Simulated scan of single mutants.
Amino acid sequence: MTAEEKILYKLRKARRKEERLAEALTKIEPKESSETTHDPEILTPEEHFFFLKMGLKCKNYVPIGRRGIYQGVILNMHLHWKKHQTLKVVVKTFSLEEVKEIAVELARLTGGIVLDIHEENTIIMYRGKNYSQPPTEIMSPRITLSRKKALDKSKYRDGLRAVRKYIPRLEGDLELLQAQAKMQAENKTEAVEDFQNANIDSINSQGISNLQPENSDKLRELLAGNNESSEEESLTDSGTESCSEALSDIFESDSDTDTKEKAEQPLYLNEFEKFPVESDGEPEDFEEHLRQISADSRKAKSLEKDADLPQLDEVDQMFLRAASLLKKKRR
């Protein structure tokens, strides 16, 4: 939900609540009867001044709280008027207009006279010249609300007052949002128009630049110069690369080539059979050579039995073992 939709939802809800509270108030308020008509007595200015001064000095008062007027308030006023001619009615948590309405209602229900409203919350009332204590039906009239219903009425009244203060605030917020939306739409249209005008100006400037050959010639010369410089740079780069390759070819050693060839050629046991022999009258085959050595040793044993045997070196023993392994593998 957008902000505008939220405010509209709250506004509809508040208006429904206002209607509901107003209906509840109309239902709970008592109906007026013809028996409660009020005919106030006429006081002279001197009497009015005297009773008003007496009422300001007196200390007896009746409080009216959030419940407003109900049966107990009127009964309490008549009980005070038994001994005192004037009375203060202190009204709390009400505005000046509501205090005036309460004063008129008290005068109608009790039959007294309103002398003045002091400090916007104190009603000074006079009981009348020919006052006599009325019966209980008048002292606590049925047309007024009971204590519980008066409390319910005060709740409805406070809720209605709060809702009626809240609705104008929501309406103001809604108007502000709508005004902001209009401003944003206008700004967008202005931005689009400025963009279109800028595009038109750029197109016109491009057309004018095409009509100016001198500027284009200068641009071509600059581009040609840039191309020549780039070609020279490429030539110098290629020259340096060729020099580096030549140096690498010159300083390339034979040891690297030899190591590569050795790494490529595998070493097998069969290579032991092909030893190049460059001796004086000795056989080229390695096995025959070994056989001759063994035959010579046998002959020497037979001829010289007492003589010591020739001791073979470690290298010869290794060769003999290798030859025996080769024979086994061939078999």
Rank of each mutant, 00 (worst) to 15 (best):
E4N: 10
A14G: 03
R15N: 04
E18A: 15
L21P: 01
A22F: 06
E23A: 14
A24P: 09
I28E: 11
T44A: 04
T44R: 04
K57F: 00
K57R: 04
G65V: 06
R66L: 13
R67Q: 14
M77S: 02
L79M: 08
K82H: 03
Q85D: 09
K88P: 02
V99H: 03
L109Y: 15
L109R: 15
G112P: 01
H118G: 00
H118C: 04
N130E: 13
E137D: 11
P141N: 00
P141Y: 00
L145H: 03
R147K: 15
R147W: 06
S154M: 05
S154L: 06
Y156P: 08
R157M: 01
R157V: 02
L160F: 07
R164C: 02
E171K: 14
D173N: 05
E175A: 14
A181H: 07
K188P: 02
Q196R: 10
Q196G: 03
N197Q: 14
N199D: 11
I200P: 00
Q206P: 00
Q206A: 14
S216Y: 12
N227I: 01
E231T: 07
E232V: 11
T240Y: 03
C243Y: 13
S244Q: 09
F251N: 14
D254E: 15
D258K: 10
D258E: 12
T259I: 12
T259R: 12
A263K: 11
E271F: 15
E271Y: 15
P276W: 12
E278G: 10
S279E: 10
S279F: 08
E282H: 11
P283T: 12
D285W: 04
L290G: 03
R291T: 08
I293M: 14
A295L: 13
S297D: 12
K299I: 15
K299D: 15
S302K: 15
D306E: 14
P310N: 14
V315S: 03
Q317V: 08
L320C: 03
S324W: 07
